[in-house]
Amino acid sequence: MRRWDLSYGLALLALACSGEKNDPPRPSGPPAWQVVLEGTPGALLRAHGTSANDVWIVGADADGQGPLVYHYDGQRLSKHDTGTTGDLWWVQADLSADEIRMVGERGRVVQYRPSTGQFSERSAPTTDTIFGVWGDDTNSAWYVGGETSANRGVIWRDDGTTISAPVPLPVATSSATFFKAQGFGADAVWMVGQRGRALYFDGQTISESPTPTFLPLIAVHGLSADQVYAVGGVADGVILRRDGQTWVDETPRGLPQMSGIWVTPDGTAYAAGFNGHLYVRKDGVWSEFEEPPTFQDFHAIWVDDQGGIWAVGGRLAADPPRDGVLVYYGPPLPEGIGP
């Protein structure tokens, strides 16, 4: 398999814009992997933002002191106290200009308003874990999750006031937990989960989309409803690509479990997973990053608007997940960013 050439990263970063005029100066230097955080009590489960200077990171509550929530503003990484407890499995930072939404254990929905600096908590009517959230605005969000040991799933819709189950609830929720949702407008939402299950909401109904795998699908992302990737696995990994009407298995030979997927506007796809493995798909070929920055398991990956790659993870098989790690690929981050 062809290995990913770091020169691609250089080119990608050189092509990217240099940021807004008011961005704080950053140290100069070639892009490289940087371990930003490691050994946090809880695993870090998602990084997502609106730009390279507005990045949110959430994670598990391994010590009972509350979930890990960090924000990077381009200059400093600050830790936030949500005032809640329980693991936070996912964050969506671009739901609206003034809301960051996080979801997690026991149906928790945590909202943060940058304008007030306040966190607030709501709950979906479930004790199950919500593993994923996606919305196209604050009044139209989807939550997916379930109880993995029972192979049972939950799907909820949030109109900003009420959190309720879609009617009819897909039959697949009786035999599969769902892990992530990703939409491309209010009438095009994908959801993926255990046993290779993939569901699609077309604005009216949720229908099942057969896939060529029985492995759990843990993450989904893409550029449009017809150009989407789903990744997952257990001991062995799987990468599926939606090619118009069908799912195509693009799993590279020897792929371990993948938990994170992100597709950049130019169509480049990045996948992250077990034991620090990172893959990139360019020109239709998946290849592996050389020299992983960690041997921990990655849970999620996100690429910012300047081409910086953010990946988070930890010891994900533990419950709660622990020993978190945040790595970044790009130009040197400011020294002493904290927290």
Binding site: D87, T129, F131, T148, S149, A150, N151, T177, F179, Q194, R195, L215, P216, I218, V234, A235, S259, L316, A317, A318, D319, P320, P321
Partner: peptide, 15 residues
């Protein structure tokens, strides 16, 4: 027999 928080449940979810 320990259950991982995310995975296959009965099938490949324990270790």
């Amino acid at each position: 027999l320990s259950l991982g928080p995310q995975g296959g449940g009965r099938y490949s979810g324990y270790h």
